[in-house]
Amino acid sequence: MYEGDYVVDIHSHFFPESWPDLETRFGSKNWPWMKHLGEGKAMVMMGEKEFRPVYAACWDPDVRLQEMDRDGVDMQLICATPVLFAYERPAEQALECAKIFNDAALALCERGRGRLRALAQVPLQDIDLACEEVSRAVACGHLGVQIGNHVGDKNLDDEGLITILQHCADVGAAVLVHPWDMMARDRMPKYMLPWLVAMPAETQLSILSLILSGAFERLPDSLRICFAHGGGSFAYLLGRVDNAWRHRDIVRQDCPSPPSSYVNRFYVDSAVFDDGALKLLADVMGEDRVMFGTDYPFPLGEQQMGRLIRENPYLSLGQRKKMLSGNARQWLALTQADMIAASTA
């Protein structure tokens, strides 16, 4: 801990303890539901298929706050797990799901004694409905929105998705881009390789889609957008991208400036799990663009929350402070009252 600072984890997930039977409500198969196993353990199911084991921290704020206290975290930003997005479903059904889980997130936050805040989900497959739900969610207390990095074959440079990003900027909603529905699953059937290989690639694809398409030239500077998991493979391959931009006109045809010049247009979280990787991320992105994020409470998340930043031998005290607190305040537009509530609860 750093005296006088508030530690903000900008990337954590939740599941409600229960939710309506979506299969019955919509008359179609393979909707997510929670199978409770007792003693604070459960299995998230997709129809009859097991998806992910979870435990009470997903739905019990007391368990979550105890673990935050254990690791010195003052505030957590919670968002849905992408399996709840329902982008592949009819848009009206995805909207209903968004409202169910967005309201559940706020109910969880109400029990979090000022230390839990939420990002909403939206039916990203329908632009108008998505914009409407962004506005409703922000008015109800969400700090912004979590979106998947693509919808079907549409990347973030799709005109509709750019419209949603513009709307988020207009209403002051922070945006967290989270990879989902990973590419080439048929070639990665074992060892969680979709999460280990495709997830970083999906995130780099979403960042480069905005950069190389010229979308950042059209989007306002007021857009506050962050990419999960350290921006995936982006920072580590940026030199390759700059080299391609310099030497191939088909790479730079819609992008007027070197790709590396756009790193001040977005944030990334710190979930890279290695001292040297975090140093490189800070070197590439700049110390003002990396925020503490854990992917809590999942096994692929940071198990001792904040340790990577606090004990990193390559970071200065000033860099640690910015990553643990200051940058998140800027991205989320947190007020002093928000931080005081989190620290005194």
Rank of each mutant, 00 (worst) to 15 (best):
S206F: 11
I207D: 00
I250N: 15
D181S: 10
D269W: 00
W195F: 13
P179T: 06
L212I: 04
M188C: 08
A173Y: 00
T203M: 08
A282D: 10
L210E: 07
L193E: 11
N149A: 11
A173M: 06
H150S: 12
D153E: 13
F273H: 14
A271N: 04
L280A: 10
D186V: 08
G144Q: 10
P200S: 11
W180H: 12
K279D: 14
L212R: 12
K279A: 12
D249R: 07
P179F: 06
A139Q: 11
Q166Y: 13
L196N: 06
H142V: 05
L280D: 10
I211S: 01
N155H: 06
V241P: 06
V175G: 03
V251M: 13
L161N: 02
Y262T: 09
L161V: 04
G230P: 02
A201M: 15
S270A: 12
N155C: 11
L196C: 13
L196W: 06
D274T: 01
M199T: 00
I250T: 15
E202F: 08
V268Q: 12
A139Y: 03
D153Q: 07
M199G: 03
A139L: 08
D153G: 06
S213R: 12
R218N: 15
I211Q: 07
C226D: 09
S233G: 14
A228L: 11
E202I: 11
R218A: 14
A282H: 02
D249E: 15
L165D: 07
V272L: 00
D249H: 07
G152Y: 11
A184V: 01
Q166C: 09
Y191H: 12
Y236H: 04
L210M: 15
V145C: 06
R265T: 03
S206D: 15
I164E: 02
A169H: 10
V175I: 07
V263T: 05
L165G: 08
F227M: 01
H167A: 10
V197A: 10
G276Y: 02
P194W: 05
P259H: 00
V272A: 05
F227R: 02
V251K: 07
S261F: 04
F273V: 03
L238M: 03
S222N: 13
L193P: 00
L156Q: 01
H142E: 06
H178V: 11
D158K: 06
L165S: 12
D283N: 04
K190I: 08
R187S: 10
I147D: 00
Y191K: 04
N264P: 01
L176W: 14
L208N: 05
L143Y: 09
P256V: 10
R246E: 15
S257D: 12
G276P: 00
E202N: 09
S261R: 05
D274S: 04
G144M: 10
